[in-house]
Structures are given as structure tokens and as C-alpha cells.
Amino acid sequence: MNNIEITIPKTLQEALELISGGNEGIGIIAGGTDVVAGMRQGSNRFGGINQLVDVNHIKEMKGITGAGGIVTIGAAETFSGIISNKIIRKELPLLAKACGTIGSVQIRNRATIAGNFVNNAPCADTVPVLLAYDSTIEIKSLAGKRELPLAEFLKAPYRTQLNSDEIVTSIKVPLPKGDFKGDFYKLGRRRAVAISRITLALLIEIKESRINRLRIASGAVTPIGTRFNGIEKEFEGKTADEKTLKAIASRLGERVIEVTGLRWSSEYKLPVVQQICYQMLYSAVYGGGK
């Protein structure tokens, strides 16, 4: 790994030119918390890399701005940067919370948001939240730019739609319109620097005692972060009573079995994810709880 070449482009244009040559061994590095750790552990995802393009100094990929009801987060923004941002803390509290649970201070000072979902580990903590917020991402290459929903971008564990000549430049999160309540939940084997065993992001809007809008997304219990549109549709319009909340949670259990199949860990995770889902709904609807 020592004799890798590293370039630090100052502009996006420069970076795009660097990766446009069709060089198989070229990769992008942001915080490096997946790349460097993965290379050291001999992960085959980073095996053939002989050149890295560091995107941390590209202005276009940094910063957080809000306009027209959309918050745009630079792809190379670190988790520390995101957590300390006022707009995010106020308008996208689930994202602030999820970013705050990632790794340690040292990791959050380096690790970036795009790195998290481009790496697309099953346990990537920002993914369920970004899915619940209906985020879209902007991708650029020399050929131009495309925008697509994150849900479409993520394909399979550790695999995305990203082509080798493309860079994710930003992520756009529309501010939820309406009176949403909700939370992000993470369960690990210990209380800090933990690989997620279960994550859930949940937003619910109640109007006149009915569920007006519902958004549920999971991580770590599904092969990749997954949004449950079917469940959402099914329950929108239903009375927001305990019975319904329980039914939503049970339905989530069923869907997780369909999506994931039964795995070694299901015996534990399946019942727990349903309980957690119910508890999050309950707290959102009735307040209180923890």
C-alpha cells in the first residue's frame, strides 16, 4: 500500500479528469476510514488500487447549504461538520443523530457522508436516515451530471450505481414538509464505536388522529439500507392507535423476512426490530418514552 500514488485535486474538474482515463487501479479517497482500514485488512474491494484521488480539498464538494426547502450537503463533508451544522440539527434531527452515533470523534472528524453510502455496508448508519428523508444524490463525470434518488443508487451490499469515472458531488435532502415526528435508532454490542446490529429511521405525521404520512427505513437487518414504501402506503390513512402501530411493526417483521430471508441472526434481530419499530412509533405518536 505504501507505493500508491495520491493526488489532491483542488477542483472538481481536475478530479474528474484524473479518473476519466479508464485506469482500473484508480480510486477515490475521502476520509479514508473505509479505504485505509479495508486495504490494511486485505479487503478485495480495494485490492487493485494503485492510485487514489483525495477529494477532501475540492470546494464544490464541501459545505452545507439550504435553499428552496432543500438542504444540500457536500459529498466530502465530514460527520463532525454535519453534526455541528445548525440547519441540520434543527431541520434534519435524525441525520444529526445518526451521524453522531458513527464511530468515534476521531472517525467523525475524517469520515464523510458520501464515503458512507458509496461504501454501502449493510450497517452504514446514515443510509436509513437519508432514505427516510427521500434524499437524492448528485453525481458528476466529465460527460456531465446525473441526479438520482439514493434508493436507486444503492444496489447490493458494497455495490452502487457509481461508474468508475464518476464522483458523488453532493447529497440533497428535501426538508420534510409537515409535522413529522420520528427518530433514528441504533443498536450495537456496546455503547460507542459499535457496528450496528439494527438501525431504524422513522418519520410519521399524524393528522386528525390518522396517519397522514409514514416513512420507515432500516439498516443492518436488511442486506442494504431499505425503505419500506409498501408498508407506508398500506398504513397511510389508518387511525393512529396502538393497534395500528403494532400492525405496522408486525408488517415490518414480515417484510424483513421477505427481503432478507432467515439468517443466523434472525432469531434475535427479527423480534427486536419489530419491538423497536413499535416503540419508536409509540414515542412519536404519544410522546414520552425514551
Binding site: A249, G253, L270, Q275, Y278
Partner: peptide, 18 residues
Amino acid sequence: EPDFSNPVLKDNDFIRPE
């Protein structure tokens, strides 16, 4: 106590946050 032969929880399996 979950029962794995019935992995989908029933109404009275659920426990409130508090």
C-alpha cells in the same frame, strides 16, 4: 421471550417504551 417458530409478533407481544 421471542418464539422463533412465530417470528412475526402478535398484538400482545409488544412492549411500550416506558
